[in-house]
Design a protein around this nucleic acid. Structure first.
Length: 472
RNA sequence: GGCCCGUUCGUCUAUCGGUUAGGACGUCAGGUUUUCAACCUGAAAAGAGGGGUUCAACUCCCCUACGGGCUGCCA
């Protein structure tokens, strides 16, 4: 029997939730949720100069929007500093660490000459084996005693076994001379104390794993399962940076991608399960596994994101889609919808959801359902409402008046009307669309009529005709 | 400089020694059509380079090239 899975996401609160970080969080979430485990959240706020509460709030907000719920309280790494220091002193007492009195200037000088002479820059402290009786009464750091020979094997579920010779490891600093812990110590202690069983993080930490293992081993703690995943790159294959735009998840929210689509796209980026492309959360959780994660960095592809997003919008239940669409609208600062607008939007959902890949696209096509009279056609729609067309609409109105307002009946009446005049239905569709929606890209004219109802439909047709004849 | 990781169609990927190297997005050409989208059919499109190992290599090993990471009293 395996111990229950515990994963964690541990961002530094120095800005928004980065898209790459979001994917790391997603992988941790999927792995834990798929195995009935826990997904914890820890904020690595030990860098007091760069950490801000606003950034923490932005990260939590981003995770929440993405639908990645975490278990338990959010842990602050900074608040655990005393515990980290305890571990360092514990190691000191056990003889597995030592006080180093070398000054930073000394070390810098050493590294400078080492570099100039093209020798290894790993610093070997002379204090490692110094007699405590000879220790000066001076500021010092606490360094761990790195293993002197042999090698460390990082058993990584993504990268495979990575072997690092121990002579590549130095006696790293655990506690600074001001008594504060360094990151390397803090992560290990926190992960251990939080019971983290699987560390899934960016592969920029791969080499650090060997360093961190020194602490696990010195404390005789279980080493977690490692999974170092490649970072996401921009469309050009370069590391993601500001010039790629859209770095924070809130930007994707603002662009109108549904969270479910983002999850699917991000999951599929660098991970695969056969030929499956579009899947539900339940499927993703059931299928997700560390071994299937690719080892090469994947590039962001907005075209594919659009597609995946559109597939999810098309598959969402009408009520849920309405809810998300309204939430999106709210996030743009638009005024709240009226009851009538909401009703019409919901009624139109079946006709809207497979024509849109993002919420803005959906809303654009839902324009007819959200406006009142007069519709105020845009330029392209106005062109379709010429004199001849308006006259035709005027003549069509009585035919529609008598229809039972079922799709079949409206369609039949319109077809009959067209046939009587010897015109193609396509001749009618344009003006009809323009009169009803004031736009040229909309759902089917019949579907719009059904959503609007007889009175509103006839009124809009009348408006268009009247406007034209009246103005002329 | 030292150490570590990576490299299959434009992009995301499948393949876990033997396949006409498969799928998806995108692209192109058709079809459907009431605009937009969706949908259907088809096409073009890939193993970084060089050595090995093997009857057989995308797959295993080595070298090179290119890309990335680590090498802090940053995280």
């Amino acid at each position: 029997m395996h111990s229950p899975v515990v994963t964690r996401f541990a961002p530094s609160p120095t800005g928004y939730l980065h898209i790459g970080g979001a994917r790391t969080a997603l992988f941790n979430w999927l792995y834990a949720r798929g195995r009935g485990g826990k997904f914890l959240l820890r904020i690595e706020d030990t860098d007091r100069a760069r950490s801000t509460p606003e950034a923490t709030a932005a990260i939590l907000k981003g995770l929440t929007w993405l639908g990645l719920d975490w278990d338990g309280d959010v842990i602050s790494q900074f608040e655990r500093a005393p515990r980290h220091a305890d571990v360092a002193h514990d190691l000191l007492a056990k003889g597995k660490a030592y006080k180093c009195f070398a000054t930073q200037e000394e070390i810098q000088t050493f590294r400078g000459t080492a570099e100039a002479e093209k020798r290894s820059t790993l610093y070997r402290s002379p204090w490692r084996d110094a007699d405590p009786a000879t220790h000066p009464d001076a500021p010092h750091v606490i360094r761990i005693k790195a293993p002197l020979g042999g090698e460390t094997v990082i058993r990584d579920r993504v990268q495979g076994d990575v072997v690092i010779r121990n002579d590549q490891l130095d006696d790293m600093v655990m506690l600074r001379s001001d008594g504060t812990p360094v990151y390397m110590l803090a992560v290990v202690v926190d992960d251990h104390d939080m019971g983290v069983t699987h560390v899934i993080r960016g592969d920029d930490h791969l080499n650090n794993a060997a360093r961190q293992m020194m602490i696990y081993q010195a404390m005789d703690w279980d080493v977690p399962v490692w999974a170092h995943i490649p970072l996401i790159h921009g469309p050009d294959g370069k590391k993601l940076s500001k010039r790629h735009g859209a770095l924070g998840v809130e930007e994707y929210q603002a662009m109108g991608y549904p969270a479910a689509g983002m999850r699917n796209y991000l999951t599929r980026l660098g991970w695969s399960h056969g030929d499956d492309e579009i899947f539900t959360d339940a499927e993703a959780q059931a299928w997700f596994d560390l071994d299937a994660i690719g080892r090469a960095p994947a590039r962001l592809d907005f075209k594919k994101l659009d597609h995946v997003s559109g597939q999810h919008i098309a598959r969402m239940a009408d009520a849920a889609l309405l809810h998300e669409t309204v939430a999106y609208l709210d996030s743009t600062g638009a005024p709240a919808l009226t009851v009538l607008q909401t009703d019409r939007l919901l009624a139109a959902m079946p006709n809207l959801k497979d024509r849109a890949r993002t919420f803005p696209e959906l809303l654009e096509k839902a324009h007819f359902a959200l406006i009142g009279r007069p519709v105020g056609p845009d330029d392209k729609a106005r062109e379709l409402l010429d004199d001849v067309s308006c006259r035709i609409l005027l003549e069509l109105t009585p035919q529609l008046q008598n229809a039972t307002w079922s799709r079949q009946d409206i369609e039949a009446a319109t077809a009959q009307f067209a046939e009587d005049r010897g015109m193609k239905f396509a001749r009618l569709a344009g003006p009809l669309r323009a009169a009803l929606a004031g736009r040229t890209a909309t759902p089917s004219v019949f579907d719009m009529m059904l959503v609007l109802g007889r009175d509103e439909t006839l009124a809009r047709l009348g408006d268009a005709a009247e406007n034209r004849t009246g103005g002329a």
